[in-house]
Nucleic acid binder design. Structure first.
Lengths: 146, 146
DNA sequence: AAACTTGTTGCAAATGATTCTCATAATAAG
DNA sequence: CTTATTATGAGAATCATTTGCAACAAGTTT
């Protein structure tokens, strides 16, 4: 069994919830994805097994609480997620022009943050750093058109 | 005239938009607020002047684009904003238990970020760093109840 | 392995924040 | 003050997400 499946099974058992066929399929679909995904994209991957969109929506928060996925970027009207197991936390660079999302490592900032957390007596469970602006490509386009 | 009003007037004029009574009132209401606010909270402050919720929703993106307010935290289903003029960027610490939001200064992390931005040739327009977890108070409660 | 207890699912209807339509009103420019 | 636009209120429309409910499936117990 994969690590993420073991973790999910464990999470569910701890609170008397059941690992159903639907949940297992949805979990695996989420870990199939190599980019950000939303509920509908996930549903596309599992609807062949007759799994409803409602079940996808019901499973998503379980995966978040189990520490397996997280909300990635809040842009536009749909929630978009990404899986995080064995995936170091990172910075999202969101271009406001072409909507592209780049990622960089967060590790260089971690010590400073953990320091601050200690001062605040705050237990960190999730860090989300996103930066909006113009990517180099769009910046070039803007300059050209002037 | 306040600085934020001047900046808004300027933004609007640059694109042939009009500074109306409604927009001025909404802008001032936003700068009245000392905490995060959503569209409805803003509407509460201006509806006495017969301003509709639709107008509030139409004005919000103008204020964002004018660099006067920004999306603060995406938690729950409503967009929450905060004004940013003369307000240094900060970190949001969001307690997952009591939903309280604390803020700390972002300046200690800025140099590292600006460095990375330079490497990526990325023009930063807005930084949003939010950290979820447990605040000291809730952490204490959790320990007590064990 | 049959019976049970409890959580789960699909479906469809409900919700709720945000956006849009359209007829009327207000603004800036000339 | 006239004109050309843009803005507004009211309410309908959207659309992602939730929910109620009756049928089902998982894990447990006998």
């Amino acid at each position: 069994m994969q690590e993420h499946e073991a973790q999910f099974r464990n999470y569910l058992k701890n609170r008397g919830l059941k690992l159903t066929r639907s949940r297992a399929l949805i979990l695996n679909a989420a870990f199939t994805m190599h980019e950000h995904f939303d509920a509908e994209k996930l549903h596309d991957l599992v609807k062949h097994a007759n799994i409803s969109l409602a079940t996808v929506y019901r499973t998503l928060p379980l995966l978040v609480n189990a520490g397996l996925i997280q909300l990635a970027v809040h842009s536009g009207r749909r929630d978009r997620f990404e899986h995080i197991l064995g995936h170091p936390q990172h910075v999202h660079w969101l271009c406001e022009n072409c909507k592209a999302v780049m990622e960089t490592d967060l590790s260089s900032l971690l010590p400073a943050l953990e320091n601050e957390a200690k001062a605040l007596k705050f237990d960190i469970s999730q860090i989300s750093l996103s930066i909006k602006g113009l990517c180099w490509k769009c910046k070039a386009d803007v300059n050209e058109s002037q």
